[in-house]
Simulated assay, not measured.
Amino acid sequence: MKRAYGLGTRSVAVLLLSVSLAGCGLPRSGPSKSEILAGSVEKLGTTYIVPVDARVARAASKSPELGFSADFVTADVVGSDVIHPGDTLSLVIWENVDDGLLASKGVNATELQELQVDDAGFIFVPYAGRIRASGNTPETLRQAITDKLKEQTPDPQVLVSRAAGDGATVSVLGNTGAQGVFPIERPTRTLSSMLARAGGIAVDPETAQITVTRRGRTGSVWLKDLYRNPRMDIALRGGDVILVEKDTRTFTALGATGGQTRVDFDSPNMTAIEAIAKVGGLNTNLADPKGVFIMRDETPEIASAVLGQAGLRETQRVAYVLDLTQPDGIFNARDFIIRDGDTIYVTEAPYVQWQKTLSVLTGTASSANAITNAAGG
Rank of each mutant, 00 (worst) to 15 (best):
K2D: 11
R3G: 06
A4N: 13
T9Y: 14
S11T: 09
L17F: 11
V19I: 14
S20Y: 13
S20H: 09
A22D: 06
S40D: 08
K43N: 11
G45F: 06
G45I: 01
R55I: 02
K62P: 03
S69M: 06
I83C: 03
D87R: 12
L89A: 02
V92Y: 12
S104H: 11
K105Q: 10
G106E: 10
L112Q: 07
Q113V: 01
E114Y: 08
A120N: 07
I123Y: 00
V125Q: 02
Y127D: 06
I145M: 08
T153V: 14
D155Q: 15
D155N: 15
P156N: 11
Q157H: 10
A163L: 13
L173N: 05
N175P: 00
G177W: 02
F182W: 08
A196Q: 09
V203W: 00
I210W: 03
T211W: 04
T213H: 03
R215E: 15
G216M: 02
G219S: 00
S220P: 03
V221A: 13
W222T: 02
D225G: 01
Y227V: 14
G238P: 12
I242N: 02
T248H: 12
T252Q: 08
A253T: 00
G255A: 10
A256G: 04
T257N: 12
T257H: 05
N269G: 05
A275L: 09
I276D: 00
A277E: 13
T299G: 13
A305H: 11
L307T: 04
G308D: 12
Q326S: 13
I330Q: 11
F331L: 08
N332H: 14
R339C: 02
T347V: 05
S367T: 15
N369C: 04
